[in-house]
Amino acid sequence: TETRTFTDEREARRFEQEARDNGKDVQVRESNGKFEVRVK
């Protein structure tokens, strides 16, 4: 599991989409204006 934290939602979404395109299981959590993207 890899976790990346972004402050920019667009960057978080781009990373999320890229991971999904690669067939990964992705979860995005938002807290305090930060976006935590977990990739399995």
Rank of each mutant, 00 (worst) to 15 (best):
R4S: 05
S31P: 02
E9T: 03
E18I: 11
A19Y: 04
V28T: 07
R10A: 13
K24G: 07
E36K: 04
N32T: 03
V39H: 02
R10Y: 11
N22T: 09
D8I: 04
G23M: 05
R4I: 10
N22I: 08
A12R: 02
R38S: 13
K40Q: 12
V37P: 00
R4P: 00
T5I: 15
T3W: 14
V26A: 06
K24E: 05
R13Y: 07
F35N: 00
E9S: 06
F6M: 00
T1G: 12
N32Y: 07
D8V: 04
T7Q: 08
E9P: 08
V39M: 06
R38P: 02
F6K: 00
K24I: 08
K24Y: 15
E16K: 02
T1H: 10
F15I: 03
R20D: 02
R29E: 09
K34S: 10
R4W: 14
T5P: 02
D8E: 07
N22W: 09
E36S: 05
Q27N: 09
T1K: 06
T7G: 07
N32M: 08
G23L: 04
G33L: 02
N22G: 09
D21I: 10
G33F: 01
E11D: 10
E2Q: 11
V28E: 01
Q27D: 11
D25C: 14
Q27A: 09
V26F: 02
K40N: 12
A12P: 00
D25V: 12
V37S: 01
T7H: 08
E11R: 03
G23R: 04
F35W: 15
N22C: 14
V37G: 00
G23K: 05
T3R: 06
S31M: 14
R10F: 11
E30P: 05
V28R: 04
D8K: 03
R29K: 11
Q27Y: 14
R14Q: 11
F6V: 00
F35G: 01
E18K: 10
K24R: 11
E36V: 13
V26R: 00
Q17W: 07
E2N: 08
E16C: 15
T5F: 15
V39E: 03
E9V: 08
Q17A: 09
E9N: 03
T3Y: 13
R29A: 08
Q17P: 00
S31T: 13
R29N: 09
N22H: 11
R14F: 07
N32A: 07
E18T: 09
K24H: 13
R10M: 11
G33Q: 03
E36D: 04
K34M: 14
E16F: 09
E36P: 01
D21V: 10
A12Y: 04
G23D: 04
R14D: 07
N32L: 06
V39P: 02
V28I: 12
E11V: 04
E9R: 06
N32G: 10
V37R: 00
E16A: 15
R20G: 03
F15T: 01
R10P: 05
T5E: 07
T1V: 13
G23H: 07
E36F: 13
N22Y: 08
V26W: 02
R38D: 08
Q17T: 07
V37W: 02
T1A: 11
K34N: 09
R38M: 14
Q27G: 05
V39F: 07
K34G: 08
E11I: 04
T1N: 10
T1Y: 15
D8H: 05
D25Q: 12
A19N: 08
Q17G: 05
E16G: 07
K34Q: 12
R4Y: 15
S31F: 15
F6Y: 05
E2W: 13
R13I: 06
R14E: 10
R14K: 12
D25W: 15
R38L: 14
K40G: 12
T1P: 08
E18P: 00
V39N: 02
F6N: 00
E18F: 12
T7A: 09
E2M: 13
D21G: 09
Q17D: 05
A19L: 10
G33N: 05
A12K: 00
T7F: 10
S31V: 15
R29T: 14
D8G: 03
D21A: 15
G33W: 00
V39Y: 06
R29Y: 15
V37L: 03
R29G: 05
T3I: 14
Q17C: 12
E30W: 13
R20V: 06
R20Y: 05
E2R: 08
S31W: 14
R38I: 15
R38F: 14
T3H: 07
V37Q: 01
E18N: 08
V28G: 02
E36L: 11
A12I: 01
Q27L: 12
R14L: 12
K34D: 04
R20K: 09
Q17V: 05
T5M: 10
K34I: 15
E2H: 11
R13F: 06
E9D: 03
G23F: 06
Q27V: 13
E16R: 02
R10V: 11
E2D: 09
E36M: 09
G33T: 01
R20I: 09
E11G: 03
V37A: 02
R29P: 01
E2C: 15
V26K: 00
K40W: 15
F35T: 03
E30T: 09
F15M: 04
E18R: 09
F35Y: 11
D25G: 05
D25I: 13
T3V: 14
A19V: 05
T7S: 11
E2V: 13
R38K: 10
D8F: 04
F35H: 02
D8C: 14
D8Y: 04
E11T: 06
D8R: 03
V26L: 02
A19R: 04
N22Q: 14
A12Q: 01
D25E: 13
Q17Y: 06
R4M: 09
G23Y: 06
T5Q: 07
N32W: 04
R4F: 14
E2Y: 15
E2F: 14
R14S: 08
R29W: 14
V39K: 02
T5K: 05
E16D: 02
F15Y: 12
R4Q: 06
S31G: 06
E36G: 02
T1M: 11
F6H: 00
E2S: 08
F35M: 03
D21T: 10
R4N: 04
V28H: 02
V39Q: 03
T5R: 06
Q27I: 13
S31E: 12
K34E: 09
V37T: 01
K40V: 13
N22F: 08
F35E: 01
R14A: 13
G23I: 02
R13A: 06
V28K: 03
Q17E: 07
F15N: 01
F15A: 05
E16N: 01
D8W: 02
D25H: 12
K34C: 13
R14H: 07
A19I: 04
E2P: 06
V37E: 01
N32S: 06
F15R: 02
S31L: 15
T1R: 07
R20H: 05
D8N: 10
E30H: 11
V28L: 11
R14W: 06
F15P: 00
A19E: 08
R29L: 14
R20P: 00
F35S: 01
E9G: 05
A19T: 04
R38H: 12
K34V: 15
K24V: 06
V39A: 05
D8Q: 04
E9Q: 07
F6R: 00
G33R: 02
K24W: 15
Q17N: 07
E30M: 14
E2T: 11
V26T: 06
R14P: 01
R38A: 09
E18Q: 11
R13M: 08
T1S: 11
E16M: 14
T3C: 15
V28P: 01
R10I: 11
K34L: 14
F35D: 00
K40H: 12
F6S: 00
Q17H: 07
F15G: 01
S31R: 13
V37I: 07
D21P: 00
V39W: 07
V26M: 02
E18M: 11
A19D: 01
S31A: 12
T7W: 11
R4L: 09
D21W: 10
D25F: 13
R20N: 04
T7M: 09
V39C: 06
R13T: 04
R4G: 02
F35R: 01
G23T: 02
R13K: 08
R14I: 12
G33C: 03
K24S: 09
D21S: 12
N32H: 08
E2K: 08
V37D: 01
E18C: 14
